[in-house]
Amino acid sequence: MAGRTVLIQSKAHLSIQDGMLSVRTDRGATTLPLEEIWVVIVESHQTTLTTACLSKLNDAGIGVMICGDDHMPNGLLLPIGAHSRHAAIVEDQLTMTKPLTKQLWKRVVRAKILNQAAVLDELGLPSGTVRAFASDVLSGDTSNREGAAASAYFQALIEHGTRRDSAYSSALDYGYGVLRAGIGRAAVGGGWLVSRGIHHHSVYNAFNLVDDLIEPFRPLVDLLVMTYHVTDPLTPQSKALLARVFEHVMVMDGKRCSCVQCIEVMFSSLRSAVLERNAGRLLLPRLDGLETVPIE
C-alpha cells in the first residue's frame, strides 16, 4: 500500500493516541495509524501540536514538513538515526571513493534526463533533443549534460516564461518540496547520513544526499503540474493533488510500483552499490504515465 501524505490546510490540533495520529478540527476528529503515514505537511499556522506529538512522529519515522507565511515549504523535521544499523551504514557511506560517487551521479543524471524526455512524450511535445543528452553523460557529469538537458527541457515544457518565472513555478516548487520531504524521510529511516551527498556537497545544506537522489523523481511532479495545469495562485485542491505524488506509479527494475516503493528500493539498492563498490547496482525510477495506487 502506498504511504499516506497528511496535509493540514486549516485550523487543527494534532495528537498521538494509541499509535494513531489524531487530527481534530472544528468539524470533528480523524485518526490514522502511524504506520500508514509517510509525511505530514503542516500548512496552516493555526495548527497546534505538542513536542510529545512531534517526538512520537519522529519515533515512527514520519517526516514533518512546515510551510511559511506564503504557504510554501520552508522547514523539514526528520528523525535521527532511525535505522538500527545507522552507524554501520554511515561508516560505509563515508568510505565511498570518488570514482564510485562519480559513476553513481552519472546514473542519476541519465535517469533524470530520460524521465524528462518521457514527460515531453506524455504531453505530445518533441523529446529527441532532451533524450539525446542522456547518451552523452560522462562520469560525474563533468560536461554538465544535466544543465544542458534541463535548459532544453523547460524551454519545450513551458511555453511562456521559465522554470523560475512562470505560472507553473510555485506549483513545481511545492511539489518538489513534498517530494524532498518524502525522500528525506526514507533516507533517514534507512540509516543514511543525509548531509553527505554523492554530488551535492554544500556545507550549508543538511540534505545533500536527498538533493542528489530526488533528481530522477522531479519529472513526476512536472508531469502532474502540466497534465492538470496547476498554476498560480495555488488552491487547497491543487496542493492536495501535489501532496499525493507518492501514490503515483513509476517503474523500478521492470516492475510498476508506487513512488514510495520506488524510493525505498532506490535506497536499498544504493546500499548494495556502496557495499559492492558497483554503481551499476543502483536502481532508479522510470516514468511511464500517470497512474495511482489506490489507498484504502
Rank of each mutant, 00 (worst) to 15 (best):
M1F: 05
G3Y: 12
V6H: 00
L7I: 01
Q9D: 13
S10E: 15
A12P: 06
L14R: 04
S15I: 11
I16T: 05
V23H: 07
V23L: 12
R24S: 10
R24W: 06
R24E: 13
G28L: 00
G28M: 03
A29E: 13
E35T: 12
E35P: 12
I41P: 11
V42D: 04
H45F: 07
T51I: 14
A52W: 14
A52E: 15
A52M: 14
L54P: 09
K56D: 15
L57S: 00
L57W: 02
A60T: 03
G61V: 13
G63R: 04
M65W: 01
C67D: 10
H71G: 02
H71M: 03
M72R: 04
P79C: 07
I80Q: 13
G81A: 06
S84H: 12
H86F: 11
A87C: 12
A88S: 15
A88Y: 14
Q93H: 00
Q93K: 01
Q93N: 00
L94F: 12
T95E: 15
M96H: 09
M96F: 11
T97M: 02
K102C: 12
W105D: 03
V108I: 15
V109E: 06
L114M: 15
Q116A: 03
L123Q: 00
G124R: 01
L125S: 13
F133V: 09
E146I: 10
A149W: 01
S151A: 15
I158E: 05
G161D: 06
R163W: 10
R163V: 06
S170R: 07
G177Y: 05
V178N: 00
L179W: 04
L179S: 02
L179V: 00
R180C: 01
A181Q: 06
G182T: 03
G182L: 04
G184V: 01
A186I: 08
G190W: 03
G191Y: 06
W192Y: 11
V194D: 03
V194Q: 06
H200K: 01
N208L: 05
D211S: 04
D212G: 05
L213P: 04
V221M: 07
D222A: 09
L224Q: 00
M226T: 09
Y228K: 07
Q237C: 06
A240C: 09
L242C: 01
E247R: 10
H248I: 09
H248N: 13
V251Q: 12
M252A: 10
D253V: 12
K255Q: 15
K255H: 15
C259N: 09
Q261V: 12
C262W: 08
E264C: 10
V265L: 13
M266N: 11
S268Y: 05
L270A: 03
S272H: 10
A273E: 04
L275N: 14
R277I: 14
L282S: 08
L283I: 11
L287G: 07
D288L: 09
E291M: 05
I295A: 13
E296V: 07
